[in-house]
Each structure stands twice: as structure tokens, then as C-alpha cells.
Amino acid sequence: MIWWILAGVAAILLFFALNTFRHAVGISTLDDTPKRREERLESHWRILRPEGSGPFPAAILLSGCDGVRDNMTYWAERFVASGRLALIVDSHTPRGLDQLESWRLVCAGQALPGAERAGDLAVALNALGQRADVTDDVVVLGASHGGWTAMEFVAEASSGEVPPGLTKWPAPPESLLESVTAMVLLYPYCGLLNGADKAPWPTDLPVLMVLAEEDRIVDTDDCLAMAETLHAGGAKIETEVLAGAGHGFDQQEKSPLSSLTFDASQRDHTETLANGFLRRVTGHP
């Protein structure tokens, strides 16, 4: 009996190893056309608009691996208060990753890696570009897995490599990238599966990376090292490490047994940092 149990455990571990390798090399089991991907996402994403007819500068928000939580609404409302239209992308619900705790597969790197999810950002940028009430000033805010996604998008768009899971780009990748005026990345994943440093980044895209000193979910040192590598290649990346902060410090909603700790003061400090950064690089908070 013990040998059957050991064989079963070995088979499970082998499956996870092979699945991780599949994601690492960019092999997807499903290919969407850009139109199909947009149709899948559009019925679940949420758009918040400032008062008036516009056109408005905009922001796209990408959640962490556990799906859209209260922090996405908080940041979207802050953007709207500053005069930006905000689009919250829900990558989980259209894929059934909001059911039966299946989002944990995303957090474990077994489903929807950042390189694949970058296709969601591509179609969202294209969709905003078709709206008459949106200008060509679009900021991207990504938290945790969403930050990883945003970084992969930059590398893919820079190289022209189509995100895994898409049959083609929804628009020329250079035009999509040009529409992004700045990025704010909150405690992103920068480990081995993050391939954002595989292609040269544009030298005119300002990026603010806000990291948590006491992060126990992602490795802050990995992000500092990746930021240094990208900066050496000409990327405009600034880093801020919040003393005493932990992963997901801006998120109040959490699952049972979660180690996330909400810290309003760290969230407020991050808002001040982001406002100053965006005002400096885009002229608009």
C-alpha cells in the first residue's frame, strides 16, 4: 500500500512540475482570438467614470492572484476622484477561477501565469483605445500577480511576441505600449516564472514599483534585482520599499487562513507616493 501512495504522490508532483514548465516556456492549452478574449472579459470588467462627458485620461487595474478584491475598488475610486476613467479587469471569473477556491492554482503558479494574462491587458488597452471618452493617457496599476502581468506585457509588446493564449495581438503591440503613459506596480511577483527581463524595455515608460519590506509571499529582493537589471538596460523604473509592510497591505478582504494584514497607513502612504509619481511623469495624478 505504501508504494501505491508514494507513486501517487510522485505522479502529482510530476504533474505540477510539468505544468509549471509549460507555463515557463509559454505553452497555453487554449487560444483566443482578441475579439473572443474581449467578449469573455467585457461582461465581467467594471468601468468607473468621472462626472462629465470627457474625454478622460484612464487607468487599468489588475488584481492579485486571488481575484478582484476591495483594494481594486479603492484604487479605482482614487483614480476617478483625480479625473481618470478606471477599468477593473476581472481575469478570474470568465475562466471559472473564482469558484471552489480555484484561484489558489493561480497563486501557486499552476494556472494563468503573468505572461498569459498579459493578453487580458492587451485587449483592455485596445478596448479603451476605441472609446471616444478616453484619451491616449492610460496608467496601469497592477497588484501582486497583476503587477507581474503588467511587466510581462511590457516585455511581450517590446519584442512583439504574442502573449500565450492569444492567436494574435488585438492591435500593433507598439501602439498598445505607447498608450501606456506610466505603471504603478504594487508588490509584484518577480521570481523565476517572471520573464519580464527577457526583452529590452522602452526607455520612455515610467514605472513605480512599491514593495513591502516584510513580504512573505513574494521575494522583495527578487524585484529589486529585476528592477536593477531593467534599469541598467535603460528602463525608467523607480522602487520604493515600505518599511514594516507586508504583502497585500492595501487589501481588507481576505480568505480564511490568509496571512495578509491590512494596513491603512501603508495604503495611504502608497497613495501619496503614486500621486506624486504620476503627477511628475504624466502631469496628472
Score class of each variant (00 low, 15 high):
Ala7Asn: 06
Ile12Ser: 08
Ile12Gln: 05
Phe15Asp: 03
Leu30His: 10
Asp32Cys: 07
Thr33Gln: 03
Thr33Leu: 05
Thr33Gly: 05
Ser43Phe: 11
Ser43Ala: 13
His44Glu: 04
Gly52Gln: 05
Pro55Ile: 04
Ala58Arg: 04
Ile60Val: 13
Asp66Leu: 06
Gly67Lys: 03
Asp70Ser: 06
Ala86His: 06
Val89Tyr: 15
Asp90Phe: 13
Pro94Glu: 09
Arg95Ile: 03
Leu97Gly: 00
Asp98Ala: 11
Arg104Ile: 09
Leu105Thr: 08
Leu105Ile: 01
Cys107Glu: 02
Pro113Phe: 06
Ala118Phe: 09
Val123Glu: 04
Ala124Val: 02
Leu125Cys: 03
Gln130Ile: 01
Arg131Met: 09
Ala132Pro: 06
Val138His: 07
Val140Glu: 02
Gly142Phe: 05
Gly147Asn: 10
Trp148Asp: 13
Ala150Glu: 04
Glu156Tyr: 11
Val162Pro: 13
Pro164His: 10
Pro172Asn: 01
Pro172Lys: 01
Glu178Val: 03
Tyr187Glu: 00
Tyr187Thr: 00
Tyr189His: 13
Asn194Thr: 02
Thr203His: 14
Leu205Cys: 01
Val207Gln: 08
Val210His: 06
Leu211Thr: 00
Val218Gln: 06
Ala225Tyr: 03
Thr229Phe: 00
Leu230Thr: 03
Ala232Leu: 08
Lys236Trp: 02
Leu242Met: 10
Ala243Val: 01
Ala245Asn: 10
Phe249Ala: 01
Ser255Ile: 02
Thr261Phe: 15
Ala264Glu: 14
Ala264Cys: 05
Ser265Gly: 00
Arg267Ile: 04
Gly276Phe: 01
